[in-house]
Simulated assay, not measured.
Amino acid sequence: MDRFLRLIGFLVIIFIAAPLVIVVPISFSNARSLQFPPPGYWLGYYQAYFSDTDWLRPTFNSILIATATTVLTMVLVVPATFALVRHRFYGKSVADLMMLMPLAVPHIVMAVGYYSFLGNLRLVHTHMGVVLAHACLSVPIAFLVLSANLKGFDRNLERAAQSLGASPVQTFIHVTLPILRPGLFISALFAFIQSFDETVVAIFISGRDAETLPRKMFDSIRQEADPVIAVISTLLFAAVLLALLTPLAWSSIRKRLRKRPPAAAFSGG
């Protein structure tokens, strides 16, 4: 049974990683379209990506919009999570349902609604409009992650701090925040990824000035199948891999430093 489960896990990993085996070589291909196996290899499409403002501008827009979305999401989610998890009030179940509603509604339906609503506010085709729409999609994910952490929080730690004279603000900064820091970080990370990777709403809301990278990739693959798409996919994969391996490498280095024997003490002559 154990071998069977390992085999299933190995097959799942192969299924997930298989597209990367194709995309990465294509990014170094000298073909004029997405062709595998590549007829030859060069770095021309990497140069085209880093020198073309039509690709760099959407990349910068995506980073800017995702960062702003993350900040706005956390500003909204943190107090809302504390209110919904720690307090009882009339309409709490309805509030919980509304917080999670965007997860149950298809993005195309949400996109139509955002386009109509933000159009009346003249925020369509603007960075602010995309940020507001993406924040609405990121709030449920961040709320689920943070509420799970907050429900497992031992409130006796806060009571102990307050019994020792700490104010509510001091208790939050020195006790609550350090314990919830991993949950806050994961919530912010999911909000950033949700915004950076979102395509459907961006097609409706973003214009030329606020065009995001996923929308640019979608338009490119639909119109001309530009191999630069493979370059961007490879760079994003490398960024994710680096983000995953860096903490592991740092943890390994710290363990080795701790296991290193102390230097021999020198005795005075």
Rank of each mutant, 00 (worst) to 15 (best):
Y115M: 14
S251Q: 14
I22C: 00
S163N: 15
A160R: 03
L5W: 13
D209Y: 13
I63E: 06
S62D: 08
E198S: 07
S147D: 08
P102T: 11
T212G: 08
D54H: 13
I141L: 15
P106K: 00
A243D: 06
R222L: 11
F50D: 07
Y114L: 14
M217I: 15
M101Y: 10
V231P: 02
I253G: 00
V240H: 06
L244P: 03
S187Y: 02
S233P: 05
L5D: 08
V77M: 06
L7T: 10
A66P: 03
N61V: 11
A191C: 08
S33P: 01
I65E: 01
N156K: 14
K259F: 00
Y45K: 12
R222T: 07
A18R: 01
A142F: 01
Y45V: 04
F28Q: 07
I26F: 08
N120D: 12
A230Q: 06
I63T: 11
Q162P: 07
Y41W: 10
N156H: 14
P261H: 07
T126G: 04
A31D: 15
I14T: 11
P178Y: 03
M128A: 14
R86I: 00
I205N: 02
W250D: 02
G152D: 10
D219H: 06
T53C: 00
S195Q: 09
R181G: 05
I8V: 15
A18Y: 11
L244G: 13
V21M: 12
T67R: 01
I8A: 15
F153A: 06
D54R: 14
P227A: 09
L157W: 13
A210L: 07
F172H: 05
K92Y: 05
Y114C: 01
F50C: 08
S267L: 15
N30R: 11
P227L: 11
G40W: 12
P25H: 05
S233H: 01
A230Y: 09
A148M: 03
R181A: 15
L121G: 09
S167H: 04
F153W: 03
G183S: 08
L189S: 13
P168W: 02
A80I: 03
R159D: 15
F60K: 11
I229H: 04
Y114V: 01
K151L: 10
A265D: 11
G113W: 08
A239Q: 05
L236R: 04
A135W: 00
P182N: 11
R260C: 09
D226S: 10
H107I: 00
S93K: 08
I179S: 03
A191I: 10
E211P: 00
P37H: 09
A160V: 01
L118M: 07
A104L: 14
H125T: 12
S51A: 13
L84F: 05
G9L: 01
T171S: 12
N120G: 14
L100E: 10
P38W: 06
P262F: 05
T73F: 03
D197W: 04
Y90M: 08
G129C: 12
L76R: 05
A148G: 11
K151A: 07
V71K: 02
L164W: 02
Y115N: 07
